[in-house]
Write a protein that binds this DNA or RNA. Structure first.
Length: 928
DNA sequence: CTGGTAGGGGAAGACT
DNA sequence: AGTCTTCCCCTAC
């Protein structure tokens, strides 16, 4: 129990034995010749026994007697507390197994069966107190509950854990398939084998995760009960830890309030404060703010910096404070014994006491012990090393869980003021660290969350980046006694999308050699509640984006991948499993007030209705797919109505089919377009197009991104002059004299003549509007051969200039905004595309403090293309005129229209394509 | 009864 | 028809 047990040790013969007890089904018989097979198996398996009993009662009797005879110390099973024990005891009750027999499941003899069910079936609650009391004297190790505590996995089913942790395949047998297994000897033996394998897998998982040694260490540190540690019960561990610590210092601790009604809590608290009269008593929160219902956050937590979003392709430094909250408690001597209580509900002040409080001393002790163990660990090997490692883990876990219990309403040591003070100090520390790094060290902080900051180094050289990190660490650590910041990682490339959502290529070292791993945080692709299909698409895009390939290649690869996915989906080549979405029920499905709108609730309710007893109650994860009725024109109804369990689809003769459109537009598209938000050369509309969706539905997002960009103007509210301020004029070239001139907007034709008579503009040959009258090169003498500008010429030149512009945009030239620097660079590899508020740091840094900005932004390209449209937008001009003038120009327009219609259409086509997102040059096939 | 808060994002309904 | 609010789930720290 002191160290982990390896799989090879586990299998050494003679060490471990097993037995299986089997009975025939009610009203059924065992397969012919089965007993013969059992005898064969007995010989083959040696000490692994197979016992056949004639009834359920006999089976239970046999099992209980076996357990008694073995006098087992630990009962191990996957979800044993949530299922197996419950079944065994309920069936013992139902089969009238004598109390002297069923109580052998524990070490305490009992005569009455306790109440097995509990009031509320809560999420991950494990066994009821009644059940737990039955196994008194033995430890219960539920590998399901323990895995949930110790691992971060998408699924905690035995099948998944066997695969991810033990690298073994586990065969799943659905409960309703079990009766069929009794029909032949072969299948029955296979069933027995599966049952035994499951038991072994659970045991192996326990050893693999070192559950026994770890929980033993945790229990030794806190001084609580081992069995409770194994049930999770982190709050209780901290409670015991503090009880011991305060008791040792001769403090009186508060009673634990266990009432549910407000009045009983208040009474208890009054009693508690009456008991303790000196001011060394502990904080109790007099404001019994609705402890039960809803419970929003009771106090402010960690600070999350607004990220400077974008793709960074030079080194990013990740620095974080080592166990921030425990360090704060020590740094500022925060304790029940040191903090002045504020009566007015205002936040407490930092203590001035010079006497070290109980909590800081306790933590100091834990930290020192951990340091010591870690030093032993360095020279130890084998089992000793493993023990030390587990011990240091336990010490760290204990130190880190203290804060949580200070803020936990039902904790005996609930102390909102202290918890609040801790987090508030944490926020101050993070903010002042950011200020130091940005204002004193002049480095760019791009993000930070609670205890970490990320610094964009702007460096290509990892050695220089390390030096930079060392400098920052040195400067920050100067400021604190116990608090310590450290380098937690160096990212070679990083995509920063939102708060708590980013991915990065982390550079790590093994034996001095660097290697890269991709870290993904918070993104849709790490969440269970997206379909595998969407996550795989997102994963592919992310890998491309972080690959360091050229912008064109990345965009091209993503686009073609999406088109392939769409094709595969429509051809039915994607397996059902990839469409499955998983969500956990946090309540019983009936308890949802508005369950009608929730897919997983609806599916769970239907499962219950069709006779499932497990897998559809609180805490269970529900799998579903979104469907539509085959042949239906529109998908009416909410998502919840169209959600089906994958098995429902297999058995309903194809009435319901996968809703491909839903998966394209609501699963793949949002996931992918969020990842590509900062990638040049694509946008939501373009991605939608690749997926075969109506791109115009995503157009507003393009506009949104444009209007959010402060560099763009709010085009709609401005007059034409202002609106197109800064736009390149449309240059027309005369074929005769090869000189070029600016094509004036047609608006000038109307506006300059607004207050002039027809006579005036007859004589006005040098003005802009002369062009719109004559359609001739202004440089060439009148009526020169070839000086006439034709309709096709205008259209062609519009097209050419628009293409040039777009091509310039795609070159992605970045220019430094520092007037003195004006450094220009071509972003060959998806160059850093900073937040719109602030570009990325100039490569000339630190000589130059400017930031790179795109020379041509999407907004500017769009504005320019709109200007080209505006030049020819005669209809718009006419509409602005009053009826008198309108008549005057109708005649002129009849002449002008044929000349400009083609150019106008051309300009519009290009602009609209651009706004839809397909600004790829090869797509610009305008027929002229 | 069985640590904490911050935050994104889907879905639906109320509101303007 | 868009915006806001609410609930729900899952994640980061």
């Amino acid at each position: 129990i002191d160290g982990p047990m390896t799989a090879s040790e586990l299998r050494r013969s003679g060490i471990l034995s097993s037995f299986t007890i089997l009975r025939k089904l009610e009203g059924g018989i065992l397969p012919l010749g089965f007993m013969k097979k059992v005898d064969d198996k007995k010989i083959k398996d040696g000490m692994n026994a197979l016992i056949v009993e004639h009834s359920e009662r006999a089976l239970l009797n046999c099992l209980m007697n076996k357990l008694c005879k073995l006098d087992t110390d630990v009962l191990v099973g996957h979800n044993i507390s949530g299922f197996d024990l419950d079944v065994l005891l309920h069936r013992s009750q139902a089969c009238k197994v004598p109390s002297g027999v069923w109580s052998r499941i524990g070490r305490l003899k009992r005569s009455m069966m306790p109440k097995l069910t509990k009031g509320t079936t809560l999420y991950g609650s494990g066994a009821s107190p009644g059940i737990m009391s039955c196994i008194a004297g033995r430890l219960l190790c539920d590998t399901y509950l323990c895995s949930r505590d110790l691992l971060k996995e998408a699924s905690y089913s035995l099948t998944e854990l066997s695969r991810t942790q033990l690298n073994k395949n586990r065969e799943e047998i659905a409960p309703h398939d079990i009766p069929a297994k009794f029909q032949s000897s072969e299948s029955l033996l296979q069933l027995i084998d599966c049952g035994e394998t499951d038991a072994w897998l659970s045991l192996e998982l326990m050893f693999h995760l070192s559950i026994l040694p770890l929980t033993r260490q945790l229990t030794n540190i806190s001084g609580n009960l081992w069995g409770k540690t194994m049930q999770g019960a982190r709050a209780q561990r901290v409670e015991y830890l503090l009880l011991h610590a305060f008791h040792a210092k001769k403090y009186i601790v508060p009673d634990k309030s266990i009432g549910t009604s407000k009045s009983s809590i208040a009474t208890k608290k009054r009693l508690a404060s009456a008991d303790v009269e000196n001011r060394n008593d502990l904080h109790t929160d007099e404001h019994t703010e609705q402890v039960k219902s809803k419970k929003g956050p009771a106090y402010a937590g960690g600070l999350v910096l607004e990220p400077k979003k974008g793709l960074y392709d030079k080194f990013v430094l990740l620095l974080d404070f080592n166990s921030l909250y425990p360090s704060i408690i020590q740094e500022y001597n925060l304790c029940f014994t040191t903090i002045e209580r504020s009566l007015d509900g205002l936040p407490s002040c930092l203590p001035s006491s010079t006497i070290t409080g109980v909590l800081p001393e306790l933590l100091k002790n834990l930290v020192e012990r951990r340091k010591m163990v870690k030093s032993w660990l360095k020279t130890a090997s084998g089992l000793k090393a493993q023990q030390f490692d587990i011990q240091q883990q336990a010490l760290k876990l204990t130190a880190n869980s203290l804060y949580g219990c200070l803020g936990f309403t039902n904790s005996r040591f609930y102390a909102k003021p202290i918890a609040e003070l801790i987090t508030s100090q944490g926020r101050d520390i993070l903010q002042s660290t950011v200020d130091l790094v940005q204002n004193v060290l002049n480095l760019e902080v791009i993000y930070g969350d609670t205890d970490s900051i990320m610094i964009y180094s702007g460096l290509d050289d990892i050695t220089k980046a390390r030096i930079m990190a060392a400098k920052v660490i040195q400067e920050v650590n100067k400021k604190y006694r116990r608090l310590e910041i450290d380098l937690d990682g160096i990212y070679k490339r990083m995509l920063l999308l939102k708060k708590k959502k980013y991915a990065a290529v982390k550079v790590q070292f093994k034996d001095g050699k660097p290697y890269e791993v991709i870290e993904r945080k918070g993104l849709d692709i790490v969440r269970r509640d997206w379909s595998l299909l969407a996550k795989e698409s997102g994963e592919m895009c992310l890998c491309q984006i972080l690959s360091g390939g050229s912008c064109d290649d990345v965009v091209e690869t993503i686009h073609s991948y999406l088109m392939k996915v769409q094709q595969d989906m429509r051809n039915g080549e994607i397996e059902l499993e990839k469409y499955v979405i998983r969500k956990t029920l946090t309540k019983s499905p009936e308890e949802y007030p508005d369950g009608r709108n929730q897919a997983h609730v609806q599916v769970a309710l239907r499962m219950k209705q069709s006779g499932f007893s497990t897998g559809c109650s609180a805490g269970d994860t529900i799998s579903y797919v979104i469907c539509c009725v085959q042949g239906a024109i529109s998908n009416s109804g909410g998502i919840a109505e169209r959600a089906r369990h994958p098995d429902e689809l297999k058995t309903n003769n194809g009435n319901w089919i996968i809703d491909i459109e839903y998966y394209l537009s609501q699963q793949i598209h949002p996931v992918v377009s969020r990842l590509c938000a900062f990638i040049q050369g694509t946008d939501p509309a373009r991605l939608a197009d690749c997926l075969g969706l109506d791109a115009s539905k995503f157009q507003h997002k393009t506009f949104e991104s444009i209007s959010n960009d402060p560099s763009s103007v709010l085009a709609s509210v401005l007059d034409a002059d202002d609106r197109y301020h800064g736009c390149e004029p449309l240059r027309l070239t005369c074929q005769s004299c090869s000189s070029s001139f600016d094509c004036p907007p047609i608006l000038t034709f109307f506006s300059t003549s607004r207050d002039s008579t027809a006579m005036d503009f007859e004589n006005n040959k040098e003005t802009n509007n002369d062009f719109w009258r004559r359609f001739c090169c202004p440089r060439c003498p009148e009526d020169t051969e070839g000086s006439k500008i034709t309709s096709a010429m205008i259209a062609n030149q519009v097209k050419r200039q628009a293409e040039n512009l777009i091509s310039l945009y795609y070159k992605g030239i970045m220019i430094c905004d520092d007037e003195m620097c004006k450094h220009t660079t071509r972003s060959l590899n998806l160059c850093v595309l900073g937040d719109s508020e602030r570009g990325t740091v100039c490569p000339n840094y630190p000589q130059c403090n400017g930031h790179l900005r795109k020379q041509y932004t999407e907004a500017e390209v769009y504005k320019q293309l709109s200007y080209f449209c505006h030049i020819f937008d005669a209809k718009h001009c006419i509409e602005k005129l009053d009826s008198n003038r309108r008549v005057l120009f109708e005649k002129e327009l009849k002449r002008i229209y044929p000349m400009i219609n083609l150019a106008f259409a051309t300009a519009q086509k290009i602009r609209d394509r651009c706004s839809y997102g397909w600004v790829q040059l090869n797509d610009l096939s305008v027929s002229v």
